[in-house]
Design a protein around this nucleic acid. Structure first.
Length: 571
RNA sequence: CGGUGAGUAGCGCAGCUUGGUAGCGCACUUGGUUUGGGUCCAAGGGGUCGCAGGUUCGAAUCCUGUCUCACCGACCA
């Protein structure tokens, strides 16, 4: 490809609304342009990268025995009503009507369509297991699209769905996908980690996320420093402290604490650290048979934070997690927020494992402007239960018993689930089994954010000059930069000849044949992130040499013209 | 959904307080100059100042409404 005949669209200045590096560089390098919030046009060089990522995904999926197909973006509402997600899915599901006033949705995912297809097409256990996938545009009307391609509303996703007559078969395919995902991210040249995840609203039991590690990641991941353990902090189990419980020494004492409301204030008032205090959070309880809601108290150590997802899963707690209002608290407990504590509460009390490990701690007295010191479980509070309701933190013991937890940030680029029968039973998707009986199928589902991978790769691979593509997904492998070609026939000849050689060797080369100054060309090629550069200049031509430069290492070397092709081909 | 801020040329911005019909840098066009890391000089083209309404002799500027976009928040006892 010649730059003079290409749409480079590079820019010097960063558009003001680009926040993260990948977004800035994708705009500057001319990969994408924004059309509206969360909607982007892929320009030629961006599309090249996107297609490369998709190709690698496709190859590895095929290798793992999955079969490619393609489903519509627009889906009829009745499928979604059948699965129940028409009501479950919130405003993130974009609903549209056609000219006959029939309801449709823009597919944020394709469980309904595939399940309905398999229900009709597959009728015998002999046809199973089967794993079908597509690489398709998805639409999710995100609350807050941001970070450019990273969290757009329209995006490219690879989604695969497997169908089985037994859990063993599902396990097997799930393992196969787990391995295929590792292969994919390996080939893409990204630093990644599979982590244990929450299965979220899609449902199902077992689930892993694949994260590309990057500072700007939206998810926090808990790692063990001495084992393979890795889990999303949403999920990571916070185990009870492994240290011996300190024997209780004190007797509870009520202390007047006007204007002491936060844990910070409690600490400075009593001159203690937050891990000697307890905070009591009041949330709405689950509805009883009559549909009435009581309140529930969640007790955490002062320095810990509540994990909403864990709390929501408790039978006693209303989901989604909802904080009680000040008025509700005043009515039920007769005390202001800021002085609540577990002693004498008229509502169920759930205590985090770490908080339950404390002795002689400080907490609110359930009397406005008053706290208690020297409080101890069992002695002072009889009726409570213990659960894991906090976020794991750096320095905590790893839940697998090996090592200590470290927290890093990651970008979720893949997610695999064992779905079970959620969709197949709702939609009656089954086959006749060996006994000739109708059997509902069990499902797995496996997603990869193809477009997000492009952004994630940049987050992980860039410097102050621009993008540094891993070879596997670079838009071009080689940049050919002639110096002042318009003034030198010799340079033009060598450049044209090298270009031709590279092209016929099947190497993707971007030949910068613009009448530009060298600095402009260098800067553009570095911004775009082409891994290998060949510079042709008068100086070196006298010795029949050209310069090779590696984008990542910055290493330069002079190479005989005749050796350039093999050097680049071997990279 | 809540909070904050912003919409002026393709991009980055000034002008608005104190109303008088729009400017700078980059990019673009032409000519010259320069040529191993974003040359320099000159001459050009390009904007219904987000949209609608109002005040006024006169509105980018003041008022009202509306749309769009961005950032922050949705962890607090």
């Amino acid at each position: 490809m010649r730059t003079s005949q290409y749409l480079l669209s590079t820019q010097k200045e960063t558009p003001a609304d680009a926040e993260v590096v990948s977004h800035q560089l994708m705009l500057r390098a001319g990969m994408v342009r924004k059309l509206a919030s969360g909607l982007y046009t892929w320009l030629p060089s961006g599309l090249r990268v996107l297609n490369k990522v998709a190709d690698i995904v496709r190859q590895e999926m095929n290798k793992a025995g999955a079969i490619e197909m393609l489903m519509p973006v627009v889906q009829p509402a009745d499928l979604w009503q059948e699965s129940g997600r028409w009501d479950e899915y919130g405003p993130e599901l974009l609903r549209v009507k056609d000219r006959h006033n029939r309801d449709f949705v823009l597919g944020p995912t394709h469980e309904e369509v595939i399940t309905s297809l398999v229900k009709n097409e597959i009728s015998s256990y002999k046809q199973l297991p089967i794993n079908l996938y597509q690489i398709q545009t998805k639409f999710r009307d995100e609350v807050r699209p941001r970070f450019g391609i990273m969290r757009g509303r329209e995006f490219t996703m690879k989604d695969a769905y497997s169908f089985h007559t037994s859990d063993e078969s599902l396990q097997q395919t799930y393992q196969g996908m787990f391995q295929a995902y590792c292969n994919i991210f390996e080939r893409l040249g990204l630093e990644f980690r599979p982590v244990i995840a929450d299965s979220g609203s899609i449902g199902g039991a077992v689930s892993h996320e694949f994260h590309v590690l990057a500072e700007s990641g939206e998810d926090a991941i808990a790692f063990s420093d001495s084992s393979d353990y890795a889990a999303n902090v949403e999920m990571a189990e916070a185990i009870a402290p492994v240290t011996e419980q300190v024997p209780a020494m004190s007797v509870k004492t009520q202390v007047a604490t006007p204007d002491v409301k936060t844990i910070q204030q409690v600490c400075s008032h009593f001159n203690i650290t937050a891990d000697k205090t307890v905070k009591t959070i009041v949330v709405l309880g689950a509805e009883n048979e009559k549909g009435q809601q009581d309140l529930v108290a969640l007790v955490l150590r002062g320095d810990h934070s509540l994990n909403n997802i864990k709390a929501e899963k408790l039978a006693e707690v209303y989901a989604p997690l909802t904080m009680a209002t000040d008025a509700q608290i005043l009515e039920k407990i007769n005390c202001e927020v800021g002085s609540i504590g577990p002693i004498g509460l008229p509502i169920p009390i759930i205590v985090d494992r770490s908080a339950a490990h404390l002795t002689d701690f400080v907490c609110g007295a359930n009397e406005t402007g008053s706290h208690l010191t020297g409080v101890n479980w069992d002695k002072d509070i009889a009726d409570y239960q213990i659960a894991d309701i906090r976020n794991i933190e750096a320095g905590d013991p790893s839940p697998d018993g090996q090592g200590t937890i470290e927290i890093k940030r990651g970008i979720e680029v893949g997610h695999i689930f064992q779905l079970g029968e959620k969709y197949s039973s709702a939609m009656g998707c089954g086959v006749l089994n060996e006994q000739g009986k109708h059997q509902i199928l069990t499902m797995g589902c496996y997603g990869i954010g193809v477009s997000r991978i492009v952004a994630a790769a940049i987050e992980q691979n860039h410097d102050k000059y621009g993008i540094i593509w891993p070879d596997a997904i670079a838009p071009f492998k080689v940049a050919l930069i002639p110096m002042n070609m318009h003034k030198s026939h010799r340079i033009q000849q060598v450049a044209e000849s090298l270009y031709e050689q590279l092209v016929s060797a099947g190497i993707e080369v971007l030949f910068d044949d613009r009448k530009e100054r060298p600095g402009v060309m260098f800067n553009d090629m570095e911004l775009i992130g082409i891994p290998h550069t060949i510079v042709i200049g008068e100086r070196n031509l006298d010795e029949n040499k050209v310069e090779y430069k590696n984008r990542r290492s910055g290493e330069k070397q002079l190479v005989e013209i005749d050796n350039v092709l093999s050097l680049v081909a071997d990279c």
